[in-house]
Write a protein that binds this DNA or RNA. Structure first.
Length: 240
DNA sequence: CCAGACGTTGTT
DNA sequence: GTCTGG
DNA sequence: CCAGACGTTGTT
DNA sequence: GTCTGG
């Protein structure tokens, strides 16, 4: 699945990469990289309206319009690609409210069959480019402070690279798919669902990382650096 | 008809 | 065990 | 995703 | 809001 990720690429670079409108300088200055993005946090997403792509903050964890409060968002951080058309909370967003969530990489926890321990891994593109994750967004008007826009990330079966680590992975969309995915006028859910397949096996690399990533309050660039998993089991981390 | 759920993951 | 918060 | 809380009353 | 279950 996808429950934690890195968002460290500056918005102006994302704007170029996704052919989206640039941010005002003042807003760009306030941006900070996030090496441990967790559910309920604000994440940058790309949406399109009237043919114009924009980069905007959405709260991660989709909150349906009928929700009494925001809490349900913590459990709606992912939407299964296989069933997205059938689920009440996701079917309308899938038809008309799609977005991309750009990430530098994401984290997955590999559970050891023998010990039950969880080893976190960092997964990222070998060429250093961002990954465009397929997302859906929704608006919640239940609060007193005006509408809150939220999002979720689609998941699919793992490719051969991820299978040893986890049984789900986020849906990654290639450049050629962005156009129809972001076009709100595209209502061919049959076609759209054909885009929701595991990424090519050679697209994503991975390595084990420090368990410091476990706590969402830790946010350092070094969280995504490789460690020796054998050293970790003895409590002797050679890198730190 | 009304009432109650609406989601994913992982674990068992 | 289960829910909430980050 | 993982970490951390999970409850009330009354007193300070 | 919309679907499922009773």
């Amino acid at each position: 699945m996808c429950g934690r990720f890195v968002a460290a690429t500056e918005p102006f670079r994302l704007a170029r990469y996704f052919d989206a409108e640039e941010w005002p300088v003042e807003q760009e200055k306030a941006w900070v990289p996030n090496y441990n993005t967790a559910p309920t946090q604000q994440v940058l997403a790309i949406r399109e309206s009237a043919g114009q792509r924009r980069i905007e903050y959405l709260r991660w964890g989709l909150v349906p319009a009928w929700a009494e409060d925001l809490r349900i968002g913590s459990r709606m951080i992912n939407a299964r690609a296989e069933t997205v058309t059938e689920k009440r909370s996701f079917s309308k967003p899938f038809k008309t409210q799609r977005c991309l969530v750009p990430v530098d990489g994401f984290y997955e926890w590999q559970v050891s069959q023998e010990t039950g321990r969880k080893q976190p891994h960092y997964l990222f593109r070998g060429d250093g480019e961002p990954l465009a994750l397929a997302g859906l967004w929704e608006v919640w008007n239940g609060g007193t402070e005006g509408p809150i826009e939220t999002c979720t990330i689609l998941t699919c079966a793992p490719n051969q690279t991820l299978a040893p680590i986890h049984d789900r992975m986020p849906v990654v969309l290639g450049r050629s798919a962005w156009g129809r995915w972001l076009d709100n006028g595209e209502h061919d859910t049959g076609y759209l669902q054909t885009l929701l397949v595991p990424a090519a096996n050679d697209l994503i690399l991975h390595h084990p990382i420090d368990t410091a990533v476990n706590s969402a309050s830790n946010n350092h660039a070094w969280l995504r650096e490789p460690v020796n998993p054998d050293a970790l089991t003895t409590g002797d981390n050679a890198l730190f």
